[in-house]
Simulated scan of single mutants.
Amino acid sequence: MERLKKLFYLFLILILLTAFSLFVGRYPSPGVMNPKLLQTDALALKLVMNLRLPRILTSLLLGSVLAGSGLVFQMIFSNPLVEPGFLGVSQGAAFGAAFSIIFFGSSLILIQGSAAFFALSGLALSYFIARRIRYGGWILRLILSGIAISALFSAGLGLMKFAADPMSQLPEITFWLLGGLWSVTWRDFFVILPVSLISLIITFLMRWKLNILNLDDETAYSLGVAPERDRIIFLFTATAATAAVISVSGIVNWVGLIVPHIARRYFRTDTRFSIPAAMMMGALFTLICDTIARTFFSGEIPLGILTSLIGAVLFLVLLTGKQTGVNR
């Protein structure tokens, strides 16, 4: 009952901050906009409805997907240091974006499509290679193949940077890799919504199985769970949603790494509570970071820089805090 109350309060805070962030920005002056202005200023209404609202909704979706997927990966791999882009997804998306910028130009549609394609290709290649490794358990094989594929895409990204025009293409690649939601529109939001929403729903409905999958396979079988099948479902849905959101946002680090730790700290390791908590905390984290990014300075700070900075600080706080263990 106590954890249900915490989830309710967390949801209430998320709703309130979302509504508040709609009126925070640099128009008509830096600070909080008077809501009554929407009735008299047509430009303010268009700004809120066509720029801020899709951007805010995308930031909520981005945080929910990265944090929820991060907790899924950490539970399945029994490793607190893995994150959603672990199986070659993040590096694949980065390579795809750079590939599109160099060979197909700066079209946002092509960049997003190429990033999503190579991100999913990273997962497919990791799975394909893991099936052909002849030693170790399934989890170990996935980890090894994911490391290898990430290294290959990272090397490919280096080659793309080397081949890029240093005056135009290279700065664009670098800026995309920093992450940001400055160009998000309603079209971008609705493109990533179906995959992300389906993934979040599947993860939420199956979240109790993660508690069992964290046990050994024999125990999981005895409790009526098919470990390999369910792990594939979790990995595919989480990775597909991650590929979708980072194709729009670019590389946004630390959300999928640090937020699951915070969720487990306050909601314990029972995934019936920690999964929805991680999703809402991730949405809050990216919403706050993105609001800071577009508000504090006239020149927008890339979202990936803020999430890395704040995430690293939070990580140090968790490491040096009094409570170093995880409650079960």
Results as ranks from 00 to 15, higher is better:
N50L: 12
A130T: 07
N50G: 11
G256F: 04
L10F: 02
K322W: 07
F236Q: 08
A163P: 03
L318G: 03
V225Y: 04
G250F: 04
S308E: 02
P276Q: 09
V245C: 13
G137C: 12
L213T: 12
L318P: 04
I305Q: 04
L87F: 13
A148H: 03
M279P: 14
S154K: 08
G63H: 02
R328F: 14
P166N: 14
L287A: 05
V259G: 04
K161D: 07
R231W: 00
R272A: 04
L200M: 02
R265P: 01
A67K: 14
I192D: 07
A124G: 14
V313D: 10
T271N: 15
K36I: 09
F297V: 02
M75L: 05
I111W: 10
A240H: 08
A283H: 08
D165G: 01
T242Y: 12
G63Y: 02
S121V: 11
M167K: 13
I305F: 08
A220S: 15
L170S: 14
L4A: 15
F273H: 09
R132S: 07
S154D: 12
M167R: 14
L306P: 09
M160W: 01
A293Y: 03
L177N: 14
S107Y: 11
S64I: 06
S196I: 13
A19P: 02
L110E: 05
K46R: 12
T271A: 14
I232W: 10
K322D: 09
S150P: 05
R3E: 08
L7H: 08
T185F: 06
L193P: 11
A312S: 15
R131K: 15
V252I: 15
T269F: 03
V32H: 00
A163Y: 09
L71K: 04
P302R: 08
E2Y: 08
F95S: 12
T18R: 00
P302N: 05
A220E: 06
I147C: 12
Q91G: 12
G304H: 06
L87R: 09
E2N: 12
I149H: 05
L57V: 02
T242V: 11
N34Y: 01
G146S: 08
I292V: 02
A278L: 11
T18I: 00
L213Q: 11
T239F: 06
D290T: 00
I198C: 07
G136M: 05
R294Q: 01
E228V: 00
R26S: 00
Q169G: 09
T185D: 07
F204M: 03
F175M: 07
L14H: 06
N214E: 15
A124W: 14
F103D: 04
F95I: 13
F11Y: 13
A115F: 04
K209I: 07
L144K: 05
L316R: 13
I251G: 02
I198W: 05
L287Y: 01
G137I: 05
F273E: 03
I212D: 06
I246W: 04
Q112H: 15
Y221E: 09
L144C: 06
V82F: 02
L257G: 07
P80W: 02
G304C: 06
G180R: 07
A151C: 05
M1H: 13
G156F: 04
